[in-house]
Nucleic acid binder design. Structure first.
Length: 249
DNA sequence: GCGACAG
DNA sequence: ATCTTGTCGC
């Protein structure tokens, strides 16, 4: 009995939807068609996929497995290393995977996903456990075309996703109060697209935005819940560390 | 028009 | 992102 439904998507992707049953799931998402080459092609893909993102689903309040994702860059080559670390409720590592490969797109602000998605999707495919929630290093809704990395990854995997960035990118926001848990809205064209969220007292805030299938409130709750010690949520911090290693391709 | 711009 | 030492502050 298959729990997967393959569904063609515009923009060079076939989506494999995961259903409720079964945690073990190779091929969370798979790319089939050519990857965009030009900025214009990439922007067109974002426009095509954006209607598929779900921002109304409040998402899970509690999860069994939460994954952090990040990409590291080699100093002297055009290779990128995607890393995924899966944590349980107690923030213990229960699974992790990497993928090192040649970069398939240059770094262009606003088109970040086309550089980082390939190694991240491959790494996700190598997991033994299917996470219930993904925390990405970068933006989601807070994006010039409202479709940052977290949204893109959410649509491709069907999983709830959150974007957590370390610096401001779009929109305006006030500085949140200095205590952990304080936040201010990030506004873009009269819309709230995310929050500047203080995860530690007197430490620079992080920038949280919805990716897919989760509310902004719940996204921030998960970020705070998984940030017991450092500025960044543990899943991302550990994925960042893993992405700096130099694993086999 | 020019610069800035998630990582 | 990455190249890089020490140093100021809680």
């Amino acid at each position: 009995m298959s729990s997967e439904i393959e569904q063609p998507l515009a923009g060079g992707v076939n989506q494999v939807i995961q259903h409720e049953n079964g945690r073990r799931a190779p091929h969370i998402a798979r790319r089939t068609n050519p990857w965009p080459t030009t900025a214009a092609e990439a922007e067109a893909v974002q426009e095509q996929l954006r209607p598929l993102m779900d921002l109304t689903d409040p998402g899970p309040l509690t999860v069994d497995f939460i994954a952090g994702l990040d990409v590291g860059y080699a100093p002297d080559s055009d290779e990128v290393t995607g890393a995924v670390v899966v944590l349980d409720n107690t923030l213990r590592i229960v699974d992790q995977a990497t993928s090192r490969q040649k970069a398939k797109f240059p770094y262009i602000p606003g088109l970040f996903a086309f550089r980082e998605l390939p190694p991240l999707l491959t790494a996700l495919d190598r997991l033994t456990i299917t996470p219930d929630l993904l925390i990405c290093d970068g933006y989601g809704l807070a994006h010039p075309r409202r479709f940052g990395l977290a949204c893109h990854l959410g649509v491709l995997t069907g999983l709830p996703t959150i974007g957590v960035a370390k610096t401001a990118f779009v929109g305006t926001h006030a500085d949140p109060a200095p205590t952990r848990g304080s936040w201010t809205p990030i506004t873009l064209d009269h819309d709230t697209v995310g929050r500047a969220l203080r995860t530690r007292d007197h430490v620079k805030p992080v920038y949280v935005s919805q990716g897919h299938r989760i509310s902004l409130d719940n996204a921030c709750a998960h970020v705070l819940r998984t940030t017991p010690a450092y500025r960044l949520p543990e899943p991302i911090r550990l994925a960042d560390r893993l992405s700096r290693t130099n694993p086999p391709a």
